[in-house]
Design a protein around this nucleic acid. Structure first.
Lengths: 235, 235
DNA sequence: CTGAAAGCGCTTACAG
DNA sequence: CTGAAAGCGCTTACAG
């Protein structure tokens, strides 16, 4: 590089006019093709028998210039964003926060990033979130649905966005899901109280109509029935 | 569109060979230019005096076909991702979760999406997260830093990524931040106890060296001093 | 009023 | 072993 006093943007060939370090700007200055740089930076140097010298040159300059590959360009070209959309009713709920933490950690391992959306227990926001995530070309969506409507989810799934439900699911709807063993848990809890001799056992419901609530109520009822305790309503 | 029995991908001119609805595929079938479609879909129809008929045609087909603009392509072209990176030590902590919720809600209003990263209170993860977010061309980063090291943050900021600290900050480091009034709060809390006649007041510290902890300890000390209560250590 | 064409920064089939 | 060129899906300066 020249050292006489041209203005900075003239001498610094490693950057384009927008002051970005890109594969092309490096290629121009280094005198190698963008193809080569791309290959080296993707660890394909050996495979394409690029000389050790070039590999060394490319990696060190990329490092020195603090080069950051443009994932957006990459995503457009590859038609794959390496991104997962996560739609949660409310991240403030520790249960959902724990899900988010676990999902983000696992995603990171595979170099995936998480787009976080809170549906705020509002079906309209949930629908908008899905549209938004699809616009971002996410590779898939993990969603803890509000829980009472599923057509939009089926539609999204059919349109080609891989979708997996978490926490809540829809009976009779063919969508993959992962959820807790609510029925068994409720059954066990109720049985536990019964074993201690209790007869009048109340059951607080969650959101009526959602799968976890259904399962839990069913477990509760099942336990009462098994022990021949009549089901009564407090009102 | 033809109705005789060609295979689906042949008749459906609204989609490209990859089965995606894009501006170009619609343009081809509708017989208008991609320019026009882009304008209409961006609400610039009136401005460019595009005929009502065309506007109507474009919007309804886009709607019918469930067209989703490709934000990745848009981002590449505009060099603006409409995306904000959020780095939090641990989303499972309700305090951070509440921050995340508020940030996401506000971002959504402005059609921004949030990339969530948990640094897991690990400086290495924090650094990696920043690099990752820069690769995603985020328009800015909001970070609740681990809190003991700041060079990498200054570097990121200097390299052109807008950065704002939340919760914790670094004294003497010129980085914008938003944090709680820890000093005042601690001072008030301590004074409150003193007002009730207490003399032996303990102070549990958080993470030593972080700004919130420093501020709180200082508030505590200040209150003791003001009331001439000697500062003692329990050991 | 409307559109052809360039270009954002990558990857990869293709040719040498 | 190496590179020129096409193309991912958009937007927009430019020309008519």
């Amino acid at each position: 590089m020249t050292t006489h006093s041209l203005p900075f943007y003239k001498t610094d060939h490693f950057r384009n006019e927008k002051n970005n370090v890109t594969i092309q700007s490096m290629a121009k200055t280094l005198g190698v093709s963008v193809t080569t740089i791309s290959r080296v930076l993707n660890g394909l140097g050996e495979q394409f028998r690029i000389s050790k010298k070039t590999i060394e040159l490319v990696t060190t300059t990329a490092d020195k210039l603090n080069y950051r590959p443009n994932n957006i360009a990459k995503g457009l070209r590859l038609k794959k964003s390496s991104t997962i959309g996560l739609i949660l009713p409310d991240i403030t709920n520790t249960w959902f926060a724990q899900l988010a933490l676990g999902i983000e950690k696992e995603a990171r391992k595979h170099h995936y990033n998480i787009f976080l959306c809170n549906s705020n227990d509002d079906i309209k926001v949930e629908k908008k979130s899905i549209a938004l995530l699809q616009s971002w070309m996410v590779d898939g969506i993990i969603i803890a649905p509000i829980g009472l409507e599923s057509e939009h989810l089926q539609k999204a799934s059919k349109s080609g966005t891989p979708l997996v439900l978490i926490d809540r699911f829809f009976e009779g709807v063919n969508l993959p899901y992962i959820s807790s063993n609510d029925f068994e848990g409720s059954l066990e809890a109720t049985q536990y109280l019964i074993n201690y001799g209790h007869k009048k056992i109340a059951c607080f419901q969650g959101i009526v109509g959602t799968s976890p609530n259904n399962q839990r109520v069913n477990g509760y009822k099942q336990a009462l029935k098994k022990n021949k305790i009549p089901l009564t309503r407090p009102w």
